[in-house]
Design a protein around this nucleic acid. Structure first.
Lengths: 143, 143
DNA sequence: TTCACTGCAAATTTTTTGCATCGAT
DNA sequence: ATCGATGCAAAAAATTTGCAGTGAA
């Protein structure tokens, strides 16, 4: 219910062990983990890390443009380590998220000009059915 | 942490007083209220309505395609009564959301084909600075 | 008359935060 | 030595749900 203003006075970042290991999670391409996903995975390496630390670091890393915050059709927030311009498709059945390269798309920011806003960027998410769920649907129909 | 499967066995809808008044909120164009926004506004007309009822109805109305569920960069879920194809810009400073007509954009669903998904639709949100926040920023820089 | 819908309240889920201590620089 | 970062735990925010009673068709 409250609105948290983004503070522009970002202090210097320290590369702690926790922060480094969280960031390493994003070196594997094609993943779009939730904060909880990240928490669960890094607990192997850092058994005592707290979920709050994960949340704080993901926010800081995304402000530092090292990862990208996504807020799409799914329930939880997600983060993306992909550096290249790309979009996402989410399967409406199983929730699977895949990347779609943005090469074949025109410059959407440019197309959006002229409506009173200075355009800074955009997020585009497609909804659809993945191959697996499409197959499952077909076999059900044919029963 | 759980994943709620969408149920396809939707029963008949009854147009209750509550549901009708919630739906009326979406006849005013250009609004993108959160569930709480809707709750606050309709309490004038329905002082005893519960927030749970609002949540349930917004979900049902969006499944019935009478309104559209948005999940964008902002913290809370939002719903949109706009019938025409359009996108959104959100001001990164103040959170204001405006519509952008989709006429000048190409068929994005078509462009997204060929990556293993059957594309059903998409959501596109731009981020930017609204006129008011742009002015405020300029006067600050020049201080 | 039926059964989808409601209000209520509690439960869950997701995210944020205060604080004493720790550790990167 | 400084002060940003951490772990812990509690709080806040957002959403969902069980249930007994209500009302639309």
């Amino acid at each position: 219910m409250k609105f948290k203003p983004p503070d522009d006075t970002v202090p210097l970042l320290r590369m702690t062990r926790q922060r480094r290991i969280i960031l390493e999670e994003f070196h594997t391409p094609g993943r779009h983990p939730t904060p909880d996903d990240v928490y669960m995975r890094i607990r192997r390496k850092l058994p005592n890390i707290s979920l709050g630390t994960v949340y704080r670091n993901l926010e800081i890393l995304s402000q530092a443009k090292l990862i990208k915050k996504l807020r799409l059709g799914c329930r939880q927030r997600r983060y993306d380590g992909g550096l290249h311009r790309h979009y996402h498709v989410r399967c409406v059945k199983c929730g699977k998220i895949s990347d779609i390269p943005a090469d074949s798309f025109p410059d959407l920011d440019d197309t959006a000009k002229g409506h009173g806003f200075k355009i800074l960027g955009h997020q585009l998410e497609f909804e659809g059915l993945c191959q697996a769920c499409r197959k499952a649907g077909r076999s059900q129909k044919g029963r």
